[in-house]
Design a protein around this nucleic acid. Structure first.
Lengths: 246, 246
DNA sequence: CGATCGAATTGACCCGCATCAAGGAGTGTG
DNA sequence: CACACTCCTTGATGCGGGTCAATTCGATCG
């Protein structure tokens, strides 16, 4: 067991040599479209990697903000909690996506980020990133694009929460997951949900029972097959047809 | 009437001399905390001002993106429209706030921005802004903070849409407006709504009848007085108590 | 000053989803 | 292997807000 203490730093050191340039997710992440030299610059400012076990928090609302996190692999949820105890899942994040953008607005994080499976993130100290972004044109642009994309994504979710009925919401959710898995080279048709029905419900503004019933209905209609958290999409266009199926 | 054609360009030219440094909203806007010299730099890259009549669009979804807009005075709504014709108001913006951040993620805007009263905005060409942000540290930071603040704001709205009941939503809406008016030195207790019940409803994920009924209920309970669009808040803490009044 | 038109209010009814409750499936533990 | 625990499914019931419809209010205009 004392060995672990020795082994881990070595592993870190080795990992630190090749960060982005060896990362399968680079194209979806901050380094997108940067030149080899600029990627090297970016790598030089990265902090250590950080590993999280399922259920661990990467950060919590109120924690000081000093770094962004790029998911190397794993799966996260973010949620906000308000005064009266209600909480709302604001997103599920997967490899290649950035966590912590909410913290830039002040000196503290405003939401919680929790690993839904054992995960691995790159720590990007924000002050170094800011500094580098002033010198690397493409980096500044990428960072702003990522933030803007987050804003656009949020608008889509508002649309979902404000105008859609339960099964439209779930169909949109599944199609979104499917598409993001596909963008990562994974199967778009068959995947394992890493979140509970309750977390899906919180994200979609529904109760867990409603989510469960909608899953069963999709199953009965032959759109998907569901076994607990294992999902197989059988009829993508059928699912797509549910949107606006008002 | 031909006179107007002559007068307007002159007015523009005169306005261009002093932008941020003479603007009452500077503290809430991009120049916040910048030095006098940096503000001068920022002013030098501003485009013309642009005036809009009530009902005019500043931009529409699909329009090319090349500038941000800072509201000098007036009032806007932004909304997104999806394939099947439903739309969702994503925000109401007032003096000192920035419009167009959604466009950064691609080369096009993804939502519509419409003036709800005669308004006046500063045009900020984005490529110049990006360039200046690389040289002016505080400017880059302010821009990122504004984007991050937008993300945090959106999370709050998701919470509202995902977990609150109708009158909580309306109470939160009124308190938010009130606070923003106060931050601008206007009355927090008495104001004129610039949007219809239907637009409020779209923003809050409710139908216009529900919004109207909630207003009437608040009125009957002595929390506010309502006459069409004129609102007077009579009991702020009462309103606040409605949140989480499950 | 009456006519017209969009916006807001109010009422009656109904439906989708929340709520409450019971039981089943899967997983880890002593 | 029994037990506990969490997560999921399914049913019964009720309510909040959607829907449809009628009326009123206020502004604009001939």
């Amino acid at each position: 067991m004392p060995q672990a203490r020795v082994v881990i730093p070595i592993a870190y050191a080795r990992q630190k040599i090749r960060h982005c340039s060896a990362c399968a997710m680079a194209a979806l992440c901050l380094p997108a479209d940067l030149s080899v030299e600029d990627i090297a610059r970016l790598e030089s400012l990265l902090g250590n990697r950080r590993r999280l076990k399922r259920g661990q928090h990467l950060y919590r609302a109120g924690d000081g903000f000093d770094a962004l996190f790029a998911i190397r692999n794993g799966f996260f949820k973010t949620d906000v909690l308000n005064e009266d105890g209600r909480d709302q899942v604001t997103g599920f994040q997967m490899a290649g996506e950035l966590l912590g953008l909410d913290g830039i607005s002040s000196t503290r994080h405003t939401c919680n980020a929790m690993a839904l499976e054992d995960s691995d993130v790159c720590v990007i100290p924000f002050s170094s990133l800011e500094h580098a972004a002033r010198e690397i044109e493409g980096l500044q642009r990428n960072l702003m694009k990522l933030m803007s994309r987050e804003i656009v994504r949020d608008h889509g979710l508002m649309m979902l929460l404000g105008t859609m009925r339960a099964d439209e919401r779930l169909a949109a959710f599944l199609l979104n997951l499917s598409q993001r898995f596909m963008a990562r080279g994974w199967s778009p048709a068959e995947f394992h949900l890493r979140m509970t029905r309750e977390e899906i419900g919180s994200y979609l503004g529904l109760k867990l029972e409603t989510v469960s019933r909608a899953f069963s209905r999709f199953h009965d209609e032959g759109l998907i097959s569901v076994q607990q958290r294992h999902i197989r999409i059988l009829d993508t266009s059928g699912l797509r047809g549910m949107l606006g199926g008002r």
